[in-house]
């Protein structure tokens, strides 16, 4: 059984109740820091290990890139 969430605009199936930190690990992101919003609210880094994800969650993961 899985539920669908949206990550950076793309639908993805995850196991229900997956913790945000585990999702970030599964995504194998680059090594730099990221910031995460779930449904428009920032989830502070200290909450990542505890924050459970649910069906329909809209997740935004951002990083710093070059810009002027």
């Amino acid at each position: 059984m899985s539920v669908t969430v949206t990550i950076n605009g793309v639908a993805r199936d995850i196991e229900p109740g997956l913790k945000l930190q585990d999702l970030l690990q599964q995504l194998e992101l680059g090594s730099g820091p990221v910031a995460v919003e779930v449904n428009g609210e920032i989830v502070p880094r200290s909450e990542h290990p505890r924050h459970p994800l649910q069906a329909m969650d809209k997740i935004e993961i951002v990083q710093a890139i070059g810009g002027g």
């Binding site: 680059g30 730099g32 990221v34 910031a35 993961i61 890139i65 070059g66 810009g67």
Partner: peptide, 16 residues
């Protein structure tokens, strides 16, 4: 700038 990470494309890439 602050932008979305590229999912699946950043593996091993250094960050700014």
């Amino acid at each position: 700038a602050i932008r979305r990470v590229n999912l699946g494309q950043d593996k091993g890439e250094p960050s700014l």
